[in-house]
Amino acid sequence: MSARSTRAYPRTMKRALALGLVTGQFLLLAALAFLPHGTLWATNVGVIVAAIALGLVGAVLVVLGVVGLGSALTASPIPRAEAQLVTTGVYGLLRSPIYAGLMTGGVALVLVGASAWHVVAWIVLVGLLSMKTRWEERMLVAEHSDYRSYGARVGRFVPGVGRLVSGE
């Protein structure tokens, strides 16, 4: 592991960063929901049907992720002390189903919003959630001895894609 990934942050700095990341993700999701509608593409029936389908897939991923974590659930990327590592259910397919669901739901909002600002907000959301996930996973590797082997088998946001490799 690199020195960066093993660095111990002071507790207050960790909490402040976690709060900033969570706040940022909710602000970006709100932006996707409330930005003015654009005209980059027509929001015809096909686009609306695709948005509804993606929105439902995103919602299902979020709900399955929340339910699957049970008592290990926290809004913060900082893992709960003494929480068991969850690798079953949707977590057997994706390491970060909640974030994958938020990204998928975000695509639905981009389709309906049809503006360049929606696209930019979604790209920033994906970047933020990717950064948040990598930080969270460094803490999970430190907390759970079997996380690295789990991460080598299971994709991050898409099944089979984004598996951990040595040194990550």
Rank of each mutant, 00 (worst) to 15 (best):
A83D: 07
S149A: 14
W135M: 11
A3M: 04
G46F: 04
L29H: 00
Y91I: 11
P97F: 07
L35R: 10
A152H: 15
T12G: 04
L93R: 14
A152I: 11
L29W: 05
A16G: 08
L164I: 12
W122C: 02
V124D: 01
P79M: 01
V63D: 02
L56F: 15
L64C: 11
T6F: 08
A152K: 15
E136W: 02
L128D: 06
L128C: 05
N44M: 13
L64P: 02
S149L: 08
V47D: 01
D146L: 09
T43V: 15
A121M: 10
A72S: 15
T88I: 02
R153Q: 14
L102S: 14
V86K: 11
M139H: 05
G24A: 10
R156E: 08
V141Y: 04
A18M: 09
T133M: 02
R156S: 07
T87C: 08
S149W: 02
D146T: 15
P159Y: 06
M103R: 03
I52V: 15
Y150N: 05
G20T: 12
T23E: 00
F26E: 04
G113Y: 07
I78R: 03
L35P: 10
A100H: 01
K132T: 14
T133G: 00
L125D: 02
G162V: 07
A31E: 03
E136Y: 00
L19K: 13
A51C: 04
P36E: 03
V141K: 13
S96E: 14
V126C: 12
I78L: 09
A30F: 06
A121I: 11
Y9N: 10
L129W: 01
E168G: 08
E143G: 01
R95P: 09
L111A: 01
A30L: 14
L21E: 13
A30V: 09
T6P: 02
G105F: 05
V107F: 06
V124P: 02
L54V: 12
L109P: 03
G70D: 09
L102P: 03
A116W: 15
T104P: 01
P36V: 06
S5C: 13
R138E: 13
A108S: 15
T43R: 14
S2F: 13
V161N: 00
V63R: 10
R95Y: 04
